[in-house]
């Protein structure tokens, strides 16, 4: 029964203005909490908060990745995943049996193991320099894994971090279009006929796909 009792969470501050809406999208569809904290820490190192604006964590990237893993992408739903399985040439692309979400399961466990072995701490509790060193070890295949390619996983993690920063906020990342705002990218405008020929850079308030449905 103990598992069913909701863990004590931080009470919502009474100072929170009533108008501020809660983002119900920020819960997990696939990852465990432990995995989520690894993804959160790792993506924040790949896209850290700095003077330009928020990092991956504040942008919602970890939720974006969780939701993507839970869906078609995580299950390679539109990819050919049937036998025969053979090791191919590099030019023949991915030929493995594992789905993306299974690769994440293995890789995140390996990241945790590597952190524990080298620093005796979980990945999320490491100093940022140590986190970078772990990520670098995966990126360069310094970590030797038998079931998956460490560098291919890093590439996927890096790619999905960028997707979470810049995809339409409907997917759970790019919170408040802040990813776009940092780049002065106007998102989803319908027409640029007025500015297409002009020399001056036109900065405009971004618009997301939400604007294209009547609410």
């Amino acid at each position: 029964m103990g598992n069913l009792i909701r863990p004590k969470t931080k009470a919502i501050s009474p100072a929170t203005p009533a108008a501020e809406s809660v983002n119900y999208n920020q819960a997990l569809m696939y990852l465990t909490q432990e995995q989520f904290f690894i993804v959160e820490a790792a993506t924040e190192r790949i896209f850290p908060a700095d003077d330009n604006g928020p990092g991956a964590k504040e942008l919602g990237v970890p939720y974006f990745i969780d939701h993507q893993l839970a869906g078609e992408w995580g299950s390679n739903g539109r990819e050919y995943m049937q036998a025969p399985f053979y090791t191919g040439e590099k030019t023949q692309g991915y030929q493995g049996r594992l789905k993306r979400k299974e690769i994440f399961d293995i890789a995140l466990q390996e990241m945790q193991n590597f952190s524990m072995k080298k620093y005796q701490k979980k990945f999320k509790d490491l100093e940022v320099e140590q986190q970078d060193a772990v990520l670098k070890a995966f990126e360069t295949d310094e970590v030797k894994l038998t079931t998956i390619s460490a560098s291919a996983f890093f590439k996927t993690l890096f790619g999905s971090t960028m997707e979470g920063v810049y995809a339409d906020p409907l997917y759970g990342g790019n919170n408040n279009m802040a990813g776009w705002k940092m780049k002065n990218f106007p998102g989803n405008q319908m027409a640029y006929t007025k500015i297409i020929e002009q020399d001056k850079f036109e900065k405009m308030q971004p618009v997301s796909l939400r604007e294209h449905l009547p609410h």
Partner: peptide
């Protein structure tokens, strides 16, 4: 990035190889 408008490879794909000495394998993605 998710190739919405293209052939759904989970249903049907092609096999390919660079030359006849290589084993033709399915284009998975």
């Amino acid at each position: 990035l998710r190739y919405e408008m293209f052939q759904d490879l989970s249903k049907e794909t092609i096999t390919f190889r660079g030359n006849e000495k290589i084993r033709a394998l399915p284009m998975r993605s």
